[in-house]
Design a protein around this nucleic acid. Structure first.
Length: 156
DNA sequence: GCCAACGTTGGC
DNA sequence: GCCAACGTTGGC
């Protein structure tokens, strides 16, 4: 497998967990992903040191608010085993975990958030394969190419 | 394997 | 709060 740094975008509702929360805590397990495609990106695609665009969703101004990095290899999401968690999954077992996560480490907060509206306005430069603005896509974890990463950060 | 019903995401 | 769009579940 290539060890070249990859890039990702991860969505979080700031009411639940924001870039400011990550800055305070520094490292946070990205718990609660219950979508197979998103899980597969974390489990099979992510490597320590990969860049992460921290996206705020379901808020006044959705968009990219900060930069983080992948801090660990993927491991089973403990919340799937916790009966008291809203992420409990009775079909998962410790022998056969269903859900995986990585820890994410704070890197920096953007000077100015890059709003979804602004990203859309530059859709042409990002290409049709950019899942964030592809119609109907609701993925909470998605890959970002090196070129897209660079393009997005010029919008800061 | 089909597909209707349901739940969730997430922008607006 | 609305609703479009998607993923998942479960009956058949």
């Amino acid at each position: 497998m290539s060890t070249r740094k990859r890039h990702w975008l991860m969505k979080s509702e700031p009411d639940d967990f924001s870039i400011d929360d990550l800055q305070r805590i520094n490292i946070e397990p990205w718990t609660g992903v219950r979508n197979y495609q998103a899980r597969n990106f974390m489990r099979d695609g992510m490597q320590v040191g990969d860049g992460v665009l921290f996206y705020h969703s379901s808020c006044n101004v959705p968009g990219i608010y900060g930069i983080a990095e992948v801090a660990t290899a993927a491991y089973p999401d403990p919340s799937q085993f916790n009966k008291k968690s809203k992420y409990f999954d009775e079909t998962a077992s410790r022998d056969e975990p269903r859900w995986f996560l990585v820890d994410v480490r704070y890197v920096r907060t953007l000077q100015q958030p890059i709003s979804l509206a602004r990203i859309r306005a530059h859709a042409e430069k990002l290409g049709e394969d950019f899942a964030l603005i592809r119609r109907g896509t609701r993925l909470s974890v998605m890959p970002v190419s090196a070129a897209q990463w660079k393009t997005l950060l010029t919008l800061e």
